[in-house]
């Protein structure tokens, strides 16, 4: 599909465009104050990385990354919105914890990346164009890597079961908690009209009134 051995000017230009977009959107993730925006900006960043993979000739890997990241970020958005304070950025807030430490760690990692990029030795074995990479991937999965592949399947089923155990109502409270779909929820005496800025102390099993982790600092 793409001649990787002698990239055309289109490939060069596209690479820089995608790379810049990936970095920019990644940066915006930490500058926005809406959880939904942050999640989908992260998705945009991943999509651009996927596009770069496509430019590198990863016909399956690139598209698979686009596909996977899209649904995973969507699911992440559900959880981010559910548990984060101020989920839509109605009031301003900062998105980073421990900014000094984070900045220091970021610079160290960035420096490390630069060192590897400049002084590291990269393999120089471009694939010839038209090589059936997807067929080779499939053969590999059916052959030598069968065991890895199957154990991944088992691990993912364990993940499925584990996530259900942790999250479903019945698993957490057992039959005793009742599984009547329309069991009336516990009532709060006031119609949710707490004075603004006051945290209602309604804490039971579910963590405190403002969603456990109290994400972000006051601005």
């Amino acid at each position: 599909m793409i001649d990787v051995s002698s990239p055309s000017v289109f490939v060069h230009v596209s690479f820089w465009v995608f790379a810049a977009a990936a970095v920019l959107s990644g940066w915006r993730v930490f500058r926005t104050d809406s959880m939904v925006r942050a999640t989908f900006l992260l998705l945009v960043s991943f999509l651009n990385v996927g596009a770069i993979l496509l430019l590198l000739g990863g016909a399956y890997l690139g598209v698979a990354l686009l596909f996977m990241m899209t649904v995973e970020m969507t699911v992440m958005a559900i959880f981010m919105v559910a548990f984060m304070m101020n989920p839509a950025g109605l009031n301003p807030m900062v998105m980073v914890h421990q900014p000094r430490l984070a900045a220091a760690a970021g610079w160290v990692l960035f420096g490390g990346g630069i060192v590897v990029a400049v002084w590291g030795r990269f393999p120089d074995r471009p694939l010839e164009p038209g090589r059936p990479v997807i067929v080779e991937l499939g053969t590999e999965l059916m052959g030598r890597s069968m065991l890895i592949f199957e154990s991944a399947a088992v691990a993912l089923v364990a993940t499925m079961i584990g996530s259900v155990v942790l999250s479903s109502r019945r698993s957490r409270y057992g039959e005793a908690a009742g599984d009547d779909g329309s069991l009336p929820p516990p009532l709060d005496p006031v119609l949710g009209t707490y004075p603004t800025g006051v945290v209602p102390e309604t804490s039971t099993d579910g963590g405190d009134g403002h969603g456990g982790d109290g994400h972000g600092g006051m601005h």
Binding site: A64, V81, L156
Partner: peptide, 25 residues
Amino acid sequence: RFHARYYPMTLVFVAFEMEMMFMYP
């Protein structure tokens, strides 16, 4: 903080979908 009551389903979905990516090749 929207209570999407189907969240256990979304977790099952993510695990399921990861497995599916092996099925294309």
